[in-house]
Design a protein around this nucleic acid. Structure first.
Lengths: 192, 192
DNA sequence: GTCTATAAGCCGATAGAC
DNA sequence: GTCTATCGGCTTATAGAC
């Protein structure tokens, strides 16, 4: 029979909360199991290893995060530069929440930098690439040239703002990044 | 009498190599002591705690890193936009080295995100701020307006490229970031 | 599928000798 | 200032019962 998926989901949910709040290597499998209300043995029934659990954590964040960015882009009124700037403005608002701890994908990749082939690295890279492609498609719809490079640059500003704000705890950097992104997009718009 | 500083230096040097290569929490105090050729008790004579050692590691990287950036900026021929782009080009070259693992300051801040008041966070923030100020001064010398915002934007692109290249292992993002930085600077130059 | 119990070893940090 | 020896606790992961 199929596994009890609600137990698995509870474990992933507890892992996500703890890994994001404390960091991957700072959180033990014991702590995840306890937070999920299961024994460690049950956790190891559903996941082969802690590495497997880390991968499941990031995999579960992929679609929700992308949808949030799309929501922020879609609900901002204005041209495409303003809509992209809206992503950064919303991100700055999110970063002011006391529980905000940067980007889980980037923080995990920083922590697992000594394991380049780790499944979590592959999932993180794919997630970020999807964001880039969504961005590129939005830019392309405006008839802009060189959208691949432009989408990469906006994405560099986005990930830069995650890193910088995590270090300084000053979300205004996200608004600065949004201005830079809008400026780069407007340069491309004006040379159509 | 003064402590034997060469022993201390050997410990910091061993810590730097290991923390950068493997990550902070992945490296034990035992491993650092062994790599430095001292016992753990000697290490704890020179440092109060592992946290103290982490701070010493980052503190030791502050000036060398800043001087490297200044060297790359200074040796690149051209206007200030081209010179800044030179930093990114040199960084891309460095990132192609197999031992490159991103920015030690950013990776440490990602790993210690759950300890905002950690001495290492303060040292990292100060280091990055110094880079921003050096950049701002170079831009100001060209008679550019709004150099504070511009220096922040270039720095966001720099730290973004550290994060992105660490995840994708594709140093070409650094050249893309350098193009964006040069583009933003040229916009400011042309409106003098 | 979930439990209790435990393996086997590593963790940061310390006591006390010299 | 550096050593040997060790503390108490936590680490990932597994054995075997139900």
């Amino acid at each position: 029979m199929a596994v009890n998926s609600s137990t698995r989901d509870r474990i992933v949910s507890a892992a996500a909360k703890l890994f994001y709040a404390e960091g991957i290597r700072a959180v033990s499998v014991d702590a995840v199991a306890e937070a999920a209300g299961v024994t460690k043995r049950t956790l190891y029934y559903h996941f082969d290893s802690k590495d497997d659990l880390i991968a499941a954590y990031l995999d579960g964040r992929d679609q929700p995060n992308l949808q949030l960015f799309q929501k922020w882009f879609g609900e901002t009124q204005g041209d495409v530069a303003t809509k992209v700037e809206g992503i950064f403005r919303n991100l700055a608002r999110a970063a002011r929440h006391p529980k905000w701890k940067g980007c889980g994908f980037l923080r995990t990749s920083a922590e697992l930098a000594n394991m380049p082939g780790h499944p979590a690295m592959r999932i993180g890279a794919a997630h970020k690439k999807k964001f880039e492609i969504l961005l590129q498609q939005s830019l392309e719809a405006e008839g802009i040239d060189g959208t691949e490079v432009l989408a990469r640059q906006v994405r560099l500003l986005l990930d830069g703002s995650f890193a910088v704000v995590l270090l300084h705890r000053d979300p205004s950097y996200m608004e600065t990044a949004g201005m830079a992104a809008a400026s780069l997009i407007r340069s491309a718009l004006s040379s159509r």
